[in-house]
């Protein structure tokens, strides 16, 4: 069964049509990347799939649930990490993870928290207030928050945006590990290297439409490009 099925999805903001009938599917356990220029519709797609924005038309199924009719069920199996996501700064790291775990079944909470602590790798700093964390530490905490619940689908917007190489690499490793354990990952990124390194398949989105999709190798072969960055330039030019 496909983890995500998107059929002819459109999204309008008033008169502005941000998504113009996109269709794609993502298999279970797959890491799927959405790439495209600014304003192409990547974040809108992720927000719609995260139940944050309403569907204008089209059909979306996540884990077999209808996104519109079964939004509550969808929220139980997804985890969304927005670009530049923040935390409650007056909480300690460990309190934040506990706060998130409280929204899930009581029997799973201890295990979630244990996993969150393990993913965050913040050791003793988890007992410090979040406003004392560096950007990299905050992002690790947020990734831990997103993955500790073992979601069927993790939706990650600009996963490593603004992070240094070390922190970015650590986070990518965490996400890949999570995918190996069965979590389907849908991510968007401007970092083509990241996309090439992480994604099993990629869709290029431009002006609200999917203009190309396939594995990194397929795309590079199709556009006679040495890397995904060249594919991107070729497609959107």
């Amino acid at each position: 069964m496909a983890a995500i099925e998107v059929i002819n999805l459109t999204k309008k903001y008033g008169q502005l049509e941000a998504l113009k009938g996109i269709s794609f599917s993502v298999n279970e356990g797959e890491v799927f990347g959405l790439i495209g220029p600014n304003g192409a519709g990547k974040t809108t797609t992720l927000r719609v799939l995260s139940t944050l924005l309403e569907v204008t038309s089209g059909e979306v199924r996540i884990g077999g649930y209808d996104l519109v009719k079964q939004a509550d069920q969808v929220r139980k199996i997804i985890s969304y990490l927005p670009e530049d996501a923040g935390t409650y700064k007056n909480m300690k790291g460990i309190e934040y993870l506990r706060f998130i775990a409280e929204f899930f079944d009581e029997k799973d909470r201890d295990e979630m928290l244990r996993r969150g602590v393990e993913i965050a790798r913040l050791d003793e700093r988890l007992n410090d207030r979040i406003d004392t964390y560096s950007k990299g530490m905050q992002r690790r905490l947020l990734v831990a928050r997103a993955l500790m619940i073992k979601p069927k689908l993790a939706i990650l917007d600009e996963l490593t945006s603004g992070l240094d190489v070390i922190n970015a690499q650590t986070i990518r490793r965490i996400v890949k590990e999570s995918a190996r354990q069965g979590t389907t990952v849908l991510l968007s990124s401007h970092n083509m290297l990241e996309v090439e390194l992480m994604c099993d398949r990629i869709a290029l989105i431009d002006d609200g439409r999917i203009v190309a999709s396939g594995t990194p190798a397929e795309l590079k072969a199709r556009y006679h490009a040495g890397n995904i960055e060249d594919v991107f330039v070729e497609v959107v030019r």
Binding site: S50, D72, R75, K76, P82, A85
Partner: peptide
């Protein structure tokens, strides 16, 4: 955004 995507 995080809060709205949690099962609540």
């Amino acid at each position: 955004e995080t809060l709205l995507t949690l099962p609540v």
